[in-house]
Design a protein around this nucleic acid. Structure first.
Lengths: 333, 333
DNA sequence: CTGTTAGCGCGTTCAG
DNA sequence: CTGAACGCGCTAACAG
């Protein structure tokens, strides 16, 4: 394949000049730059990532670590990241880490340490101590889209507030028997996104002097939401409103309600979180968190960090917004 | 960061021996290997991707090019690819190419040529002549999940047969007024996946001596499917069965039918293609094409090619299967 | 502004 | 089986 010295020869200059002309670093006269660019274009020359990375220490790539690829939220965030990164000429190296501890360690201890990436973005990952230590040991900018983390630069939506907002919305409609579908109280880390949404629910309820009318753990899938809702709604003393910690679970809840012959929102109000594109089709009221924008924002933050801007070690705050599409209404009884 | 000579020093051997011990190439006595491995583990040493790639010409990474990230089919295929690749120690470098020609060229002419990847997988990409030439110029194994392509190794489901199967299913139920939602006859390349599904529909109908009762182009989204179905179903002379070229469009069609007060499958039968996880919730009859498996298979094929196996320049065939979930039934009238 | 020179960190001959 | 030395392709520093 054509290398830098082919271009140098074709343009009648040294390889150093070619490098300068193409990278923009260091000064080159306009005339020579033109010649070099022309020669490079003609020969179809593209810098070798490996050689360039070895010489500069910069890989022009960002690692993105996600727990799932085939769920709406993650692929949407990823799309946002990809957009923003490609715009700035960066490649994205993708790591999907499952729950399997062996594979997980391999990603953190091996793949991520190959010095193939200049920065890391993690999306909604719950890291254990070793993992976050491993990440910090990379010595590259890291941005976590996640609940606040003491050791990482995080971009977080205030999920406590999200939980409170969803709950307040239901309370304002007059509901007094509210249930929640979301985090398992035991399993989830207290600062995880699901746990915060749940706590927002509980706190807001406590503020109103009301007790939760049921909390069902579920796994953030439609299926899980459906099963949880079935358990909640098939009792005599069913809640009149359900706050699901994700739109996928909320959609599952709507489907379950239908199967039980219940009308939404007449018999039961349902609200979710995410702004899932499907929500529209179910008339789902939701707290939109602008997933795609989260990805773009994360990409911009890491890129700025790479451009030298000392990023706030603190945390960026992400917007959210209640979107009423009709699946919530005042209770009948 | 700790480098190969740190390990060499710690183990009391030369860097060459470390390299051999860690890579498995070349022979090292067991005793020495143990010492080296121990030292490497203790120091947390990981080979630098850039240095290794420069020296070996192998990047241990595969490029994956998709047209969308935030649609079910693509993220599901991607999940399959990722799984299989990580298992074999490869990184995945992700390129999402939009329709924007400038950005597209940048990906093909720049990013993909940085020699950062050892192979390429493209997913349902319609490549123009320059783009496929550019890919072939990469001189790395390429696997395209797509309709048959004369110049690339392809993994393809026989979409003509898929179209025929879906159509035959409806015919067998007794339908005679069948419509299709899918490819735009004009815009789509004749060998593209959507066009083939459409042709399967038309051919099978011709075999039965029946004329198509409407063909509506749509963009493979729920929304598009819904709009197309609305156009088809809101006439007096509506079709009794609709074959949508994707499950997302089929779901849109189901939703549209409901809004028009039509019962599925009583008033109108609807069949899709994909095996979308959501299909279950809509009772959608579909032709499953096992998206995740496609990804895994593609990954295995490229990896085998990298391991020296001269791959069939021909094409691999992917399975598909009719899954009846109740959205199709004999016509009432 | 431009060329020369010395590495970047590893893998690999080739002797020993 | 092991070590020394060279080179992968490019960039940074230094002269000029």
């Amino acid at each position: 394949m054509t290398g830098i010295d082919d271009v140098a020869r074709a343009a009648g200059v040294s390889t150093a000049t070619v490098s300068r002309a193409l990278s923009g670093r260091g000064s080159v006269s306009n005339a020579t730059r033109e010649r070099v660019l022309a020669a490079a274009a003609r020969l179809g020359y593209v810098v070798s990532a490996a050689a360039s990375a070895l010489a500069t220490g910069r890989a022009r790539a960002v690692g993105v670590v996600v727990p799932f690829l085939d769920r709406w939220f993650f692929s949407t965030v990823l799309a946002g990241i990809s957009d923003a990164l490609v715009r700035r000429g960066y490649d994205i190296t993708l790591y999907s880490v499952s729950a399997d501890p062996t594979e997980r360690r391999r990603v953190f201890d091996d793949h991520l340490r190959r010095r193939r990436i200049d920065a890391v973005i993690t999306v909604a990952l719950e890291l254990d101590a070793e993992e976050s230590a491993s990440l910090r040991g990379l010595d590259v900018p890291i941005v976590a889209i996640a609940g606040p983390h003491p050791l990482l630069t995080t971009l977080t939506v205030d999920d406590l507030a999200v939980g409170r907002l969803a709950t307040a919305h239901l309370l304002e409609l007059g509901h007094r028997r509210l249930a929640h579908i979301g985090a398992d109280a035991v399993a989830a880390a207290a600062s995880s996104v699901p746990a915060l949404r749940r706590r927002g629910f509980e706190e807001r309820l406590a503020d109103a002097g009301i007790e939760a009318h049921g909390v069902e753990p579920a796994d953030f899938t439609i299926d899980g939401g459906s099963r949880a809702a079935t358990r909640l709604l098939s009792t005599d003393d069913a809640p009149t409103a359900v706050f699901a910690a994700s739109d996928e679970m909320a959609i599952g809840a709507i489907l379950a309600a239908r199967e039980l012959g219940l009308h939404v929102p007449h018999d039961v109000s349902i609200i979710g979180v995410d702004g899932h594109e499907l929500g529209r089709w179910f008339g789902l009221t939701s707290i939109d968190q602008f997933a795609r924008g989260q990805g773009e924002r994360a990409a911009e933050v890491v890129l700025d960090a790479l451009d030298g801007a000392r990023p706030a070690r603190g945390l960026g705050t992400l917007p959210f917004e209640l979107v009423d599409r009709g699946s919530t209404a005042p209770p009948r009884r």
